[in-house]
Design a protein around this nucleic acid. Structure first.
Lengths: 350, 350
DNA sequence: TTTCTTTGTTGGAACGTTCCAATAAATTCG
DNA sequence: CGAATTTATTGGAACGTTCCAACAAAGAAA
């Protein structure tokens, strides 16, 4: 319906003003809704804008009042469904607050990360939610906050950076699921997946260790295997574990993705997961529920974490002077089939 | 290292100029790298910028030359790994061209879609790659192109919108995988998943039909089931199919996600997929390879489609007058285990 | 030497918006 | 009725950048 004006020349507020027979100031008032403007005038201006195909130029507007109502969401690994779910939570809250999230994927590259964060800042993002790439050092982030951009670190805590933080209760969660395996009678338990340089792994492995020690189980260093936190990584690590002379009877995996890889490896070795060996994950992504046998795991509610992260960031944008705040999301055990609890209950009953 | 200047007042090009003892024009030349500036001066200016914690204001710059080097990527469903992989391809190419992709997720909501596209345009995005939400009508997109923003529609073709398009070869792919099942001896084949209003489903189902007809197989309307294109949708539809008196021996699924849901349903009904029933998918997301039994599917190379989409968009940004261009990505059959071809070969050999 | 180019640098005028102070018209108050 | 207030509208000065024309200094060519 709206005929684009001249060749490529953008339609500005002034052309609208001329066409509608008012001043540019009046058009601006209509646009921002701030001052008092006669209803009929407003209507007329709005119609004119529509007729000429006007596009609001936010860059020009931000020149005066730096309120751009966008926030950046920087993700380290979009191919991991966990982060996709996290992103969905973030978007939900931001949208309700009238903000828009612009996402970018760093694919674990710190240089890419710096690039996109700089771009977001240059475009006047009010804040950034960062799921840091693997070797992000806290001092890499100083420049962001220097210019007054709110920053929140999510999922991977960054020791030494005093920003707001939203992470799940990794230690307690891991300890909880390990205890569950111990209660099922397992003693020889492996911890599998993730690289030891990752803070998240350190926390989860710490929880594993504390549960083991508390129960008086021996921790065999040969049963602590690193891998990339991918399905292939889990597959490889599990294969390695299964080639040991003295196999574990249960495996705690770094996250769901590696756990699913591990399950596959176990199946390839002729083991029935949940009967011959127990495998548990961490995160409770939607895959965990759908895989077969269904994965026992620790639910950290990625969507909820995203919502919380967004809410915290908005708070910080509203009051930049406020102290950084942390949120440690609850992690609760979700018992399904892969740990064998179900079969054990059946046997006990029968 | 860089001490942020005064309280919150942003550092501008003029303050840099004053501090460095040059004019703002010189600073601008350093920033854009356009004119000739003495190396020592450039160094000095750069140092000063670093020292004062300068942030480039892209909004102000765009006011003069509308070259923002960002493009928008609008995804309809981030929780589907297919789109995550597509996004990764897009980002790869854009990055190499010095562009940055800002993604947004519409979650199949047209109003959200309009909102984010408007926001992207207001921020001066040079182009937008759109994977349209479900009930997007072509006329919804007129306003985007009116203002000279390049637009490319991906994955879901939008009949009636004359934009560049990047989609996979849905019809041929579906026909190919159906023929494969027929060659394995199947005659009673179901088509399952997706809603009939989806163009992609129409194309894939069309391919299915043509292969069936060509082979002289009867097409039973009772074996054409819609569902949401999710795992749960596939699960439900498959359960429905399995409760029929006259079950199919093979199932072509709308995509991998529904196929995986269908596999799960089959397993729950006590069927061994690949032996008792054949199930095939479409897309070849990384899940297809990892599920057990591995999924026979049609590879459309989402990453490659993303790369192609980005390349085409860049071309269109460079030459806005150019005709819209289409790319139909190849779809080739990937035979794994879920169709039973492997078992059949074994039997023939043994 | 003088003239012509090249190299660096510069002030000022845009760009499209918002805000402020000023004004005109309409309304309320004493 | 005049004064005070409110309502509706307006021109002009920012905002931070880029571009253009101008210019000074230094080399090259005559």
């Amino acid at each position: 319906m709206s005929q684009p004006k001249g060749s490529k020349g953008k339609v500005t507020i002034i052309e609208i003003a001329d066409a509608a027979g008012v001043s540019k100031s009046t058009v601006s008032l209509v646009l921002t809704g701030r001052g008092a403007v006669k209803p009929e005038t407003r209507q007329h201006v709005l119609q004119t804008m529509d007729r000429l195909g006007y596009v609001y130029n936010r860059g020009a507007a931000n020149l005066r009042n730096a309120q751009s109502r966008i926030v950046g969401l920087v993700l380290n690994d979009l191919s991991n469904p966990f982060f996709a779910e996290f992103a969905i939570g973030v978007e939900k809250v931001l949208q309700m607050a009238g903000y828009v999230a612009f996402m970018a994927n760093t694919a674990e590259s710190v240089v890419r990360q710096e690039q996109v964060m700089r771009m977001m800042r240059e475009h006047g993002a009010g804040g950034i939610i960062l799921c840091p790439a693997l070797d992000t050092r806290p001092e890499h982030l100083d420049w962001v906050r220097a210019a007054g951009t709110a920053l929140l670190v999510a999922i991977r805590r960054l020791p030494g950076a005093d920003t707001s933080v939203v992470v799940p209760e990794n230690l307690a969660g891991a300890s909880r699921v390990t205890r569950h395996l111990i209660n099922l009678g397992h003693e020889r338990i492996a911890f599998l997946g993730g690289m030891h340089s990752m803070v998240v792994r350190q926390e989860r492995h710490g929880g594993f260790l504390s549960a083991m020690e508390e129960a008086g189980c021996r921790v065999d260093p040969a049963l602590n295997l690193e891998s990339m936190p991918t399905r292939d990584g889990g597959f490889g690590a599990m294969s390695a574990v299964l080639s040991l002379a003295d196999r574990p009877t249960a495996v705690v995996c770094y996250n769901d993705v590696t756990a699913i890889g591990a399950m596959l490896a176990a199946a390839r070795h002729g083991l029935v997961v949940g009967r011959d060996i127990a495998i548990v994950g961490f995160d409770d992504t939607s895959e965990a529920r759908h895989v077969s046998p269904a994965l026992t795991t620790v639910a950290v509610d990625p969507v909820g974490l995203g919502e919380r992260a967004a809410a915290l960031l908005l708070k910080q944008i509203a009051d930049p002077a406020a102290e950084p705040e942390s949120f440690i999301g609850p992690a609760h055990l979700v018992i399904r089939e892969s740990c064998g609890a179900y079969q054990r209950a059946l046997a006990a009953a029968g």
